[in-house]
C-alpha cells in the first residue's frame, strides 16, 4: 500500500520515468563517446543543425503518433491503423496537390492538408465507432483499417509514387521555424497542448478512470464511450499530421512504404515510456522519452558504424531489456520478493 510518505529515493525508484530517462542518457553517452562532436550544434542561416536536431526532427512523426497512441492505450485500446492513416494522409495531400491546376500555389497545399487531416479524422471516427459503439476489441477493430487502409492509399495514388513540388507543403517536413525544424515545432506544440489539456482539465482523470474500470466509470456518469472515441479520433489526427510530415519531407507520397510499421514503433515508445497496454495510468512525458530513445537508438546504430542491417537486432535487444526491467515480476525479484498471485481477473 503506497500509503504514505516515502523518501525521495524511494519515490524516484518508483517513478516510471526514471528507467527510460536513464536509458536515454546512456544512449546519448554512448554517442558522445563514439562521436565526440555528437552534441555540437551549428547555426547556419539562423537554422539549427546537429545530430541532436536530426534526432528530434526524424523522431517527430513517431513521437506524434505515439502521443495519440498513449491516449488510446490509456483507455485500454490500441490503434494498429495509424501506419495506414499516415499513408492515406500523405497520398491524399500529394494527389490533390499534384492534380491541381497550380501545384505550387500555397492555397492548393493548404486545401490538400485540410483534406488529408479531414480524412484522417473520419478514419479515426471509424475506428472509434467500431470500438466504442460496437464494442469490438481494439486490436481487431483497427486491424481492419490497418489491412484495408494501405489498399485505400494505393487506390488514391493509383499505385504510383506521387511527387509534388509545392514550396509551402515542403516546409512542413523540411522547413524551419524559429530556428528549429517545423516538424519539431509542430510536435512540441502538440505535446505541450495535450500535457496542458490533460493536467489543467479533468480529462486526465477521466481518461485514467475509463482505462482502469470502464464500467465503473460509465456508472459514475463518465461518458466513457465519448472519451474512448475521442482517443481514436485524436490518434488518427496525430497520424494524419505525421503522414503529412513524412510525405513533405520527401516531397512525395509512397502509399506502399510511408509509415510502414510506424504503429509498432509508436506502441513501443508508449510502452517504454511506462504506460501499460492494459490501460489506466499513462505518461505523456514517458512517451516522449520512449520515442526519443527509439530514434536515438537508430541514430546510434548509424553513427557507431554498426551495419544498418543489424540495427533491428539492437532495437530488439534494447526493447527486451527495457521491458524486462519494467516487468513487475522482475522488479520484484530485483528488489524484494513479493507474493505471487492475486492478479485480478480482468473481465
Amino acid at each position: 500500500m503506497g500509503t504514505l510518505r516515502e523518501s525521495l529515493g524511494e519515490r524516484l525508484r518508483r517513478s516510471p520515468l526514471v528507467l527510460p530517462a536513464a536509458a536515454l542518457l546512456v544512449l546519448l553517452l554512448v554517442n558522445v563517446v563514439v562521436t565526440p562532436g555528437f552534441l555540437a550544434l551549428r547555426v547556419v542561416d539562423g537554422h539549427l543543425f546537429g545530430s541532436v536536431v536530426d534526432i528530434l526532427k526524424n523522431g517527430a512523426p513517431t513521437a506524434l503518433i505515439a502521443l495519440g497512441m498513449t491516449l488510446v492505450v490509456a483507455t485500454r485500446g490500441i490503434d494498429l491503423s495509424v501506419g495506414a492513416t499516415v499513408a492515406i494522409a500523405g497520398s491524399v495531400a500529394c494527389t490533390w496537390i499534384a492534380g491541381a491546376s497550380d501545384p505550387t500555389d500555397p492555397g492548393t497545399a493548404l486545401v490538400g492538408i485540410v483534406l488529408a487531416l479531414g480524412l484522417a479524422l473520419v478514419l479515426g471516427a471509424w475506428n472509434g465507432l467500431l470500438v466504442a459503439a460496437f464494442g469490438i476489441q481494439p486490436i481487431i477493430a483497427t486491424l481492419v483499417l490497418m489491412t484495408a487502409g494501405r489498399g485505400l492509399a494505393m487506390l488514391i495514388t493509383d499505385g504510383q509514387i506521387i511527387t509534388v513540388a509545392n514550396p509551402l507543403f515542403a516546409e512542413l517536413g523540411g522547413g524551419f521555424l524559429l530556428g528549429l525544424p517545423v516538424a519539431v515545432v509542430v510536435a512540441a506544440v502538440m505535446f505541450a497542448a495535450v500535457a496542458l489539456l490533460t493536467r489543467r482539465t479533468a480529462l486526465g482523470l477521466l481518461i485514467e478512470s475509463v482505462g482502469v474500470n470502464p464500467t465503473a466509470s460509465r456508472l459514475s456518469g463518465v461518458r466513457a464511450r465519448g472519451i474512448v472515441w475521442g482517443g481514436y479520433v485524436f490518434a488518427a489526427l496525430c497520424a494524419g499530421v505525421a503522414g503529412l510530415m513524412i510525405s513533405s519531407n520527401v516531397t512525395a507520397a509512397d502509399a506502399n512504404n510511408a509509415g510502414l510499421w510506424i504503429e509498432l514503433d509508436a506502441i513501443l515508445a508508449v510502452v517504454i515510456g511506462g504506460t501499460l497496454l492494459t490501460g489506466g495510468r499513462y505518461s505523456i512525458g514517458g512517451t516522449l522519452l520512449g520515442a526519443l530513445i527509439l530514434q536515438t537508438l537508430t541514430t546510434t546504430v548509424y553513427t557507431a558504424g554498426i551495419p544498418p542491417e543489424v540495427s533491428l537486432v539492437f532495437k530488439a535487444a534494447v526493447i527486451i531489456v527495457v521491458f524486462l526491467l519494467q516487468a513487475e515480476k522482475v522488479r520484484a525479484l530485483l528488489h524484494r520478493r513479493r507474493p505471487v498471485g492475486e492478479r485480478v481477473a480482468t473481465p
Binding site: L277, L312, A316, I320
Partner: peptide, 13 residues
Amino acid sequence: FVVTLAGMFLARG
C-alpha cells in the same frame, strides 16, 4: 503483444 513484437524485430534483425 509486446513480447512477440520484440521477437518479430529480433528475428527480422
